[in-house]
């Protein structure tokens, strides 16, 4: 069994049942876990910013950095390994914000909004989520069970 570590602005896909895909330290970034229980394909995306219009060249080099390029890439990579959209289970976590941030650094909220917009346009339902608030999160997708576990800063590991 191996641990696949997803860095910041990174994506990992697998169809090995003994793999665990992990991303650490989501602050304002968002982690999206997808899993097809029939094809046994799972993927985890850790994107940093909402909109690739910020830097088109960067988005081309590393689509996983932005919501609007990373999310399509996550789904397409899973389809390429036999997953089907209608069976995909989607879980999300992250998008934290600092306290009372009314007018600056709203990256957490912007990341959440960008994701919702993309899911809404594409008719994708989120199964469970742990987003917002002001703590960091770690996500683990355990392929064998297809279950997603979240650990918040200083806390215990819990199933999402």
């Amino acid at each position: 069994m191996s641990d696949l570590i997803v860095g910041i602005s990174d994506i990992k896909i697998t169809n090995k049942l003994d793999d665990v895909i992990i991303t650490y330290a989501l602050g304002s970034c968002i982690g999206i876990s997808v899993y097809d229980p029939v094809a046994k394909v799972g993927g985890l995306l850790h994107y940093m910013l909402p909109d690739s219009a910020l830097d088109a060249k960067k988005a081309k080099d590393n689509p996983a950095m932005f919501a609007d390029t990373g999310i399509p890439m996550l789904f397409k990579s899973c389809y390429a390994m036999g997953a089907e959209k209608k069976r995909m289970i989607v879980n999300v976590a992250g998008g934290a914000s600092i306290l009372d941030d009314t007018n600056f650094f709203r990256i957490g909220q912007k990341n959440i909004m960008a994701m919702r917009k993309i899911f809404w346009k594409n008719n994708i339902m989120i199964k469970a989520e742990d987003t917002g608030a002001n703590y960091n999160r770690t996500i683990r997708l355990v392929m064998e069970m297809g279950k997603v576990f979240i650990r918040s800063s200083g806390g215990e590991m819990k199933e999402l």
């Binding site: 910041i8 914000s97 002001n134």
Partner: peptide
């Protein structure tokens, strides 16, 4: 926010507007 070296304090930080 980027999650580079976040610890137990997480994002429980005051915003300076």
């Amino acid at each position: 926010m980027m999650g580079v070296g976040g610890g137990v304090d997480g994002l429980a930080q005051r915003a300076v507007s």
